[in-house]
Amino acid sequence: MSLQTTTSQTVGPYFGIGMTWLIRDNLIGEGVSGDRFTIQGRVFDGDGLPVPDAILEIWQANAHGKYDHPEDTQRKLLEPGFKGYGRVLVSHEGMFRFVTIKPGSVPGPKGKEQAPHLAISIFMRGLLKRLVTRMYFPDDPRNADDPILTLVEPERRSTLIARKTAGGAGTLEWNVLLQGPDETVFFDVGL
């Protein structure tokens, strides 16, 4: 007999008690290759107010486009200093910031290459299950043909692409808008 997946419930307002210990706001360990970026942004609710109690998790490939996972059997280099997992909590002002490298491209459906991207899970009080989204990098010509981005209506794609900032080439801004005309695109991956 087949079992059924356990029902999701909210992390509530007090997740910091159980989840702060595993904060990973710098994904770059020793000897890691790739272009370094500081990614910062804010999370806003339907009233345009910053969300002070959210947690973001990041999952990404290394600069060679290789995931540190047994099911990634590509013949690409693993780097011991790069696990690909990040976790950040937002501040009272809804702000988050993390440091990572731009991943290489990884294969997508039918062997088509995907543009470099970060997979993001977002948890917060008020969310009964996580939100799943992606962050892509600005000015990457591969974005135009990305097999996931092109599933999104063209006018909403920009919500998934980080912006360059005045802070310099190494700093990107990517905000999460939970509702409204510029609502961030969230994906359905089943749960």
């Binding site: 909210t10 609710d45 339907g46 009233d47 969300v51 999952w59 490939a61 995931y67 540190d68 996972h69 099911e71 990634d72 696990k83 690909g84 997992y85 990884v106 294969p107 997508g108 459906p109 995907q114 991207h117 997979a119 917060m124 009080r125 008020g126 969310l127 009964l128 939100l131 097999p147 996931i148 599933l151 999104v152 909403r156 939970l178 509702q179 409204g180 609502e183 961030t184 695109v185 969230f186 994906f187 359905d188 991956v189």
Partner: peptide, 28 residues
Amino acid sequence: PYVSSRKRAPTKPLVPIPFTLTEITGPS
């Protein structure tokens, strides 16, 4: 009935995507 969900739940439909290597791998 869970009041906090009203201003935080997305209002636009989620965009279904196929599984790729990104979603079938994960941290350990």
